[in-house]
Amino acid sequence: MKAKVFVTLKPSVLDPQGKAIHHSVDSLGYSGIGDIRQGKYFEISLDPAMDISDARTSIERIAKDVLANPVIEDYRVEIEA
């Protein structure tokens, strides 16, 4: 079993790194590229015997307490059996 955690800056928070990446992509000549925002992705392997809802509860807590800073970031958890 695996958990995936996506951490992204809150929409209200400016992302200068995303902006710089966007600028580079623009300079390559791609059209139709809107906003680019940078985030973080975590893969966490879990004991297959674990109860899926217990796993979700734990990972949500880890995401909130460690992986993301809730002052500036949002997170999303996916559990794969």
Partner: peptide, 10 residues
């Protein structure tokens, strides 16, 4: 309170 982010100019 608050947080410290990457400098605006990177």
């Amino acid at each position: 309170p608050g947080a410290l982010m990457r400098n605006e100019g990177l």
